[in-house]
Design a protein around this nucleic acid. Structure first.
Lengths: 207, 207
DNA sequence: GGAGGCATGTAAACCGTTACATGATTCC
DNA sequence: GGAATCATGTAACGGTTTACATGCCTCC
């Protein structure tokens, strides 16, 4: 049972899904491919943590719709109570940004353009996902036990992270365009970090 | 030349470092282990992209301090101009949060506690790193071409992401403690996403 | 005495991605 | 006609992690 196996069980815990659906949904928060998913689903089925039903479709290939079993939910519960590993992050763009001191203005501008465009594409994609989730739930959740509530709160975070990314791109671009030196001790310095701090303390810190 | 190899060259582009140092620094933005780094450094040395000097230390093991070569910088430049892959994210905690609909209050509270504690530990660690960078640069950067400027701007983003995480934990906890239903269409709904949006449009969007 | 940090390295096991493979339909 | 979407699967390769291996120093 590797982490992706638990990821599959997690997503099956709220609704029955095909391997293909699992790939699409999981990819929103956990990078993976269908080639990794199909063999794991077969293993989970052998272990009786999931069961599938074959649905024949006309004009589309047959599909296997997987459901989690009681044994599967039990394994999930054990995993959730066990220690959690740190998040894995590997962002090639950040490595390139690290090199900025050695880059000419044009290359730097191109990098920032590419980065901001990517964030904007992601923002549109995830915003649409969130709108769908909210609409399919008729604009309300009875409690955190509602189905789709997990997706709802995760999408909120993902979207905020992307927006932070876009703001950061803008902030970085303005710093690169500056003719004068950057004085970090000066009060007027537009520190990205400080801006965020002011916001968060005043708006959420109190709750 | 895989991505980690370029990561090593990136970090060597600003200062000479040992394999051990590279592991510590890279880990701030790119999860890896020393076992992956040492063989790659040997390969980079064979290809003449890096060169090392052995430094004998008393009371500590000898170390190999690596420097990037002209050929290495050339490869870096080519890589930076080439297409960039999407970031890889694998966060086990998010998978567990996805399952929240099936969790009892106690398990949920424990998860949120664990998550917030982790974010706070990260915040302290990265804040210290940032302070060191700023202090070692005497509170100023002449331009984006300054050494350490890459680390400076990346740390700002990392810290903001962590702070967003902490705020999100608080927001989520308040939602879980709510007795009444959550109405997303209502004006008074504390949408995490909307809060962030208001902030970012007013403070940075204009620049 | 044991744990942890500094410092390097190898080997095996495991995991993940890419490419191969198939096939019908829809859209440009 | 070609590309994209739905839908499943396997095989080979490459990458990553864990464990093994060493050794000295410092701090508790």
């Amino acid at each position: 049972m590797n982490k992706l196996s638990y990821g599959l069980l997690s997503f099956l815990s709220t609704e029955p899904l095909t391997g293909y659906d699992l790939m699409l949904k999981l990819n929103q928060i956990w990078n993976t491919t269908h080639s990794a998913i199909y063999p794991l689903l077969a293993e989970l089925e052998e272990k009786k943590y999931v069961a599938y039903t074959i649905i024949g479709q006309n004009s589309k290939p047959d599909k296997k719709v997987y459901e989690i079993t009681k044994a599967g939910r039990e394994v999930l519960r054990t995993w959730i109570a066990s220690p959690t590993d740190e998040a894995v992050r590997k962002d090639e763009m950040m490595l390139k940004i690290y090199c900025m001191q050695g880059l000419d203005k044009l290359t730097m501008d191109n990098l920032l353009d590419e980065m901001e465009a990517r964030y904007r594409a992601q923002l549109e994609k995830y915003t649409r996902s969130l709108e769908k989730i909210i609409a399919s739930n008729n604009n309300r959740f009875d409690s955190y036990n509602s189905s789709k509530f997990g997706t709802f709160v995760i999408l909120q975070k993902v979207i905020c992270d992307i927006k932070t990314g876009i703001s950061w791109c803008k902030w970085l671009r303005s710093l690169c365009n500056k003719a004068s030196a950057i004085d970090c001790s000066k009060d007027s310095f537009e520190s990205f970090e400080e801006l965020m701090e002011n916001y968060q303390v005043s708006s959420i810190g109190k709750s």
